[in-house]
Design a binder for these strands. Sequence first.
DNA 1: CCTCATTCGGAGAATTTTATCCGAAATCCA
DNA 2: TGGATTTCGGATAAAATTCTCCGAATGAGG
Lengths: 155, 155
Amino acid sequence: MILSRTSQYAIQALIFIATRPPGEPVLNREIASYLNVPPAYLAKIMQSLCKGNLLYSYRGRLGGFCLREGASKTDLMQILLLTEGPSFTQECVLGLKVCSDATACPMHTKWVPIKKKVVALLNEQTLEKLARAVQTGKYRLSDLPTSLLAPMRRA
Amino acid sequence: MILSRTSQYAIQALIFIATRPPGEPVLNREIASYLNVPPAYLAKIMQSLCKGNLLYSYRGRLGGFCLREGASKTDLMQILLLTEGPSFTQECVLGLKVCSDATACPMHTKWVPIKKKVVALLNEQTLEKLARAVQTGKYRLSDLPTSLLAPMRRA
DNA sequence: CCTCATTCGGAGAATTTTATCCGAAATCCA
DNA sequence: TGGATTTCGGATAAAATTCTCCGAATGAGG
Ligand code: FES
Ligand code: FES
């Protein structure tokens, strides 16, 4: 039910960059402050996304991060393969070392079809799509300020 | 895509107990060795399952753990509520603090239906069902010995 | 009663994940 | 050239998860 924080930050950051005009480098500082995540930690994640060939990075003034050409067609699965490792779709839900029809745990037959749905979803959601959804204003990338979360709190 | 090890051990252990004759206490040591998990760690998990009212525990000779009456009707969701905490089905896939239609992230509309399927599955899989599946011999609770995992290894 | 076997409960070690810090290298611009 | 800004990369710290150890309490049986 859970992605690691690292994966969540990576996805959020990439969608955010995808909402910005392509070609204009975006500062790590700006992303972190918009998403409200720790800047130094996010910087590490950005580095690994560069190494995974999803981003370009530019140092110095006017530096920052840009999506690589075509990276707006990147889907979430490609990102998660970087951040969660290549085996994350192949794991047994009960933690057995091997998940296959031949070595199935008692959840296997029910779990695999759902897993397939998840994988299909991750494969079809591209940064472009997700960025557009955000741009409509109907969907958000960061938390609402706490003041808005419990508006009935006022006396 | 991932349950914590704690949850995986808890589920495995409970299914194992459910495959045993009810009323006869099962030793922690026996469970741990069958499932091939760290005994001292499993003992902690068993303790918390007792506190969560899924198990009875008996100390001393002839001690061990038994399912509580009716616990074979326990479903996986009840177990996970103990081991993962009460909010684990309500979390945003991208990590936003609140997941709701009104504060949706760009994955929300696609993710929630899948989440519902997962929840429904967890709600319908009882220890009884899962234990029976294991008893048929077609499904396993523990890993195969490594010697069997790569049978082509022999010269 | 004593002995043995077991869970209980607390402390704490090891590992992994998350987060921080800082000096060095790159780049822009004056 | 030199100053300002930014990422890079390595070390390290903090927190959470996973795992271990041990003495105490409990209960069965001799
Ligand atoms: S073996 Fe457990 S999910 Fe496939
Ligand atoms: S808000 Fe992200 S899944 Fe609901």
